[in-house]
Design a protein around this nucleic acid. Structure first.
Lengths: 197, 197
DNA sequence: GATATAACTGATCAATCAGTCAGGTAAACT
DNA sequence: AGTTTACCTGACTGATTGATCAGTTATATC
């Protein structure tokens, strides 16, 4: 792995666990076994480094989901919805640093005045919203899911799982303990209550 | 209002909108028309000031809800659940600085090594979780709400509304636009589908 | 009105940190 | 072998910031 990649990786971990202001360029340099001037050679400023981290997180998330949907097929839209929610929660545990970063306020604040940052965040959350919506639409077509507004309901499901992951990352409540309830609720909300069959 | 209160109020707004590290004691002093040494006279350190802010936010939230429940009566547990969710969303808009503060990562990080901080956060989130649980229990007693685990379902509802408020505060999606869908989903999840009447 | 206490402040300090710069090293090309 | 280019570094700087302290003003108490 190149030194630039080492720096990017170290910065991802540090920004995720300590935040932007509480991470110094010296720390990033130390963790990646580079001199602090080397960090500035590859990234022209601290903000630039953060944007590169966010963009790489975006690429990682988009890759993970496109890979998941390439490997997997679903019998019904309702199955797709449940499995996708499960995969989201799995990913939030497996790549905790990505979700920690997204659950900090700094990126959203930066996005107000920085188009590249706004773009990365939109790409990430549209990816999330799109997959839930797609599952709902597909379920309505195959009859496994009842009548409801797919986009808005998808966003509600996203709010719920995002909230659960936040609670877990903040050590408030354990997302795992709510998993069974979550699936039951999704089934109750989405499942077609007057199936044609 | 005493100067100590002025300082606390200014610090609340600044910590909420700029975060802990990005708020300097000089800024707090300027906004409250005090000398920076005065801030240190009333609060022995920056962390101490933050803890005082968090504790006052806790008091504010607990007061708001106890006042709300003293004024209001509900026909059924389901009504109580819907009205409480509405009030939560109203409060998140009306006292945006409180929820902005709670949607930063810093307090949860601080809570790891600080019992007073942990205590304030627990009080706040237990308050939220308790009211949703209470509504669900009451609804099961009066027959308006069906069979489900009250605590866990309450936490799921909390995850959802907390997530919606976060999305709004982060300028990702508008919580208001999802309000009707949220109420519909709550009714679908909670309402007794086999009422005795 | 004298005195004690609480509230407040200007000046200052030591530490930290983002960013710079001039120079060094390795590698690729001619 | 010489030259260009990309990569890397140690030493340094200007600015900010949390915190201190000696001293001043207001307030209460006797």
């Amino acid at each position: 792995m190149s030194k630039k990649q080492d720096i990017l990786h170290a910065a991802t971990l540090l920004f995720a666990s300590n935040g932007f202001k509480d991470t110094s360029m010296t720390e990033v340099a130390d963790m990646s076994n580079a001199a602090s001037a080397t960090v500035f050679y590859h990234f022209k400023s601290k903000e630039d480094l953060f944007l590169a981290v966010l963009s790489s997180v975006k690429d990682g998330i988009l890759d993970e989901f496109s890979h998941y949907f390439r490997e997997k097929t679903f019998a019904t839209g309702l199955d797709m919805l449940e499995d996708t929610v499960s995969f989201y929660l799995y990913l939030a545990g497996n790549k905790a640093e990505w979700f920690l970063l997204l659950h900090r306020y700094y990126p959203y604040k930066l996005a107000e005045g920085n188009a590249a940052c706004r773009r990365s965040l939109e790409d990430i959350y549209n990816c999330f919203a799109d997959i839930f919506e797609k599952a709902l639409v597909q379920g309505q077509q195959d009859g496994s899911i009842g009548t409801l507004a797919p986009r808005k309901t998808g966003l509600l499901i996203l709010s719920t799982v995002d909230g659960m992951v936040r609670f877990k990352n903040c050590n408030l409540y354990d997302a795992g303990a709510l998993y069974n309830e979550l699936i039951a609720v999704i089934r109750r909300v989405a499942a077609n209550q007057n199936p044609l069959t």
